[in-house]
């Protein structure tokens, strides 16, 4: 299980991902977004809904 990969430069901090997260696992302030690894179940709802494709499902997070 791998949590979504997050690309900050593509993020508008709109919070749409927070609204569909079943685990309340995304923290969003004005210009910071953090996925709480302990809570995330990798359901990918946030990846699906993100209007800017700032979140991505990837298996190779280590190299990023």
């Amino acid at each position: 299980m791998t949590i979504p990969y997050y690309r900050q430069s593509q993020c508008d901090f709109c919070g749409t991902c927070v609204g569909v997260c079943p685990e309340n696992a995304i923290e969003l302030a004005e210009t910071t977004l953090v996925i709480l690894e302990d809570l995330c179940t990798a359901c990918m709802n946030c990846v699906i809904i993100c209007p800017t494709a700032a979140l991505e499902e990837r298996d190779d997070r280590k190299e990023l």
């Binding site: 709109c14 919070g15 749409t16 927070v18 569909v20 699906i48 209007p51």
Partner: peptide
């Protein structure tokens, strides 16, 4: 839309994915 307050208090406010409109 990014509300977490209700969920901290135990309310079910997650929007079902098919009911969220993703907008630009």
């Amino acid at each position: 839309v990014e509300s977490r307050v209700g969920r901290w208090a135990g309310l079910h406010t997650q929007t079902p994915i098919h009911d969220m409109e993703s907008c630009a």
